[in-house]
Design a protein around this nucleic acid. Structure first.
Length: 235
RNA sequence: ACCUCGCUGGUC
């Protein structure tokens, strides 16, 4: 069983899904892990309809999905924009008591889901109910506000999270910089720039390009050029 | 025991 799952994992990880599928079919038994591995493989290649298909068929086979499975399935639903299916998957997760067991992960997921479907009030509601809020959850909420053009609210998230003692990470800066760009808030953007330097995050992820973009949108091309010169990898 | 899963920019 374990050997089979490991082989399955190896193929899925490399994106060799046809091989993974074949190994899967040859396994005498399928447990949650086998299914999750296959599903993760499909999800990473963005074959979301396959994810949903697997999710349904594992249940038919009598294997109970766990939190990972639900998160993958929910992600697939939100990426494809089938929120009605998502609601059902969610209801099942609740029935199984998974939401309570992995509260932070599932709440963040919900915040994100609601934010992406445009209901920020719902996102905010889930957020407010969560007993623990980590940086990822703050990011999910702030990103939601930015994408709806509510840059001011995103900024207040940023200040609020710091008040609560949560340190921003690279993703936080990307999100907040984007809101500054959208609002043309050059001075705020420069404050962020200093903070990024202080945290040594300029080279991390897409922080540098987002920072440049912010300066460009604010009309500060010289500043953008300076950032560009400091970037180690330019693409 | 094996899967560890939630937030990620620019490119018109």
């Amino acid at each position: 069983m374990v050997v089979g799952n490991t082989l399955l994992y190896t193929y899925a990880k490399c994106g060799l899904l046809a091989m993974a599928q074949q190994v899967f079919e040859e396994l005498p038994f399928h447990n949650v892990v086998s299914w999750n591995t296959l599903i993760a493989g499909y999800a990473q290649q963005e074959f979301y309809d396959e994810v949903i298909r697997c999710f349904e068929s594992m249940k038919l086979k009598g294997v109970a999905p766990d939190t990972s499975t639900h998160v993958w399935a929910l992600k697939a639903c939100s990426s494809m924009g089938v929120f009605d299916v998502g609601e059902k998957v969610l209801a099942e997760a609740e029935e199984r008591g998974l939401m309570e067991r992995d509260l932070v992960v599932s709440s963040t997921f919900l915040v994100d889901l609601h934010a992406k479907s445009g209901s920020l009030a719902k996102a905010q509601q889930v957020f407010d109910k969560a007993p623990v809020r980590d940086v990822v959850m703050w990011n999910a909420l702030a990103t939601g506000y930015v994408n709806q053009g509510q840059g001011e609210r995103a900024l207040s998230c940023f200040y609020q999270m710091k008040l609560e003692g949560v340190s921003p990470n690279a993703l936080t800066f990307i999100c907040i910089l984007k809101s500054c760009g959208g609002m043309g808030a050059a001075s705020k953007g420069q404050e962020l720039h200093m903070e990024i330097d202080r945290c040594g995050l300029l080279q991390s992820g897409h922080v540098g390009t987002t920072l440049m973009d912010m300066y460009v949108e604010c009309g500060l091309l010289g500043k953008a050029q300076q950032v560009f010169n400091k970037l180690q990898c330019k693409d």
